[in-house]
């Protein structure tokens, strides 16, 4: 399967994520969109890694695993981020009774 399919899919996912971030105000949705974007990147990494590996002369065993390793890192970071982020959102909701990011510009003042 040509790599283009993966690229377009991840592009689409990424675009959905961006548009979501831009148009929605709900912090939870924000998070979901960010996750979608991260996963779009992950998809791309895995796809490229696979293609790269396939075209590589099998001289070195670990060539091409870098990308897939990276995906794990991203997943871990994303998980950590989500856990911290969700905790923040919960705290925010308790304090201001809203998860609308437009209300969350208090740092400006």
């Amino acid at each position: 399967m040509p790599v283009n399919y993966y690229i377009f899919l991840s592009l689409a996912l990424f675009a959905i994520g961006i548009v979501g971030v831009l148009v929605r105000r709900n912090a939870i949705v924000f998070f979901m969109c960010i996750e979608i974007m991260l996963n779009a990147v992950n998809l791309l990494l895995v796809a490229f890694s696979k293609m790269h590996h396939a075209n590589q002369a099998a001289g070195l065993a670990n060539v091409g695993i870098d990308g897939q390793l990276f995906v794990f890192f991203i997943m871990v970071v994303a998980a950590a981020e989500v856990s911290v982020g969700l905790a923040i959102i919960v705290m925010l909701f308790r304090n201001v009774h809203s998860v609308n990011v437009n209300f969350l510009n208090r740092l400006k003042h």
């Binding site: 961006i18 971030v21 831009l22 105000r25 924000f30 990011v101 437009n102 969350l104 510009n105 208090r106 740092l107 400006k108």
Partner: peptide
């Protein structure tokens, strides 16, 4: 430009 609106920043970035 530093409005504190996250969306604004994202839009600018994009």
């Amino acid at each position: 430009l530093q409005s504190g609106q996250v969306t604004g920043y994202v839009l600018l970035m994009v």
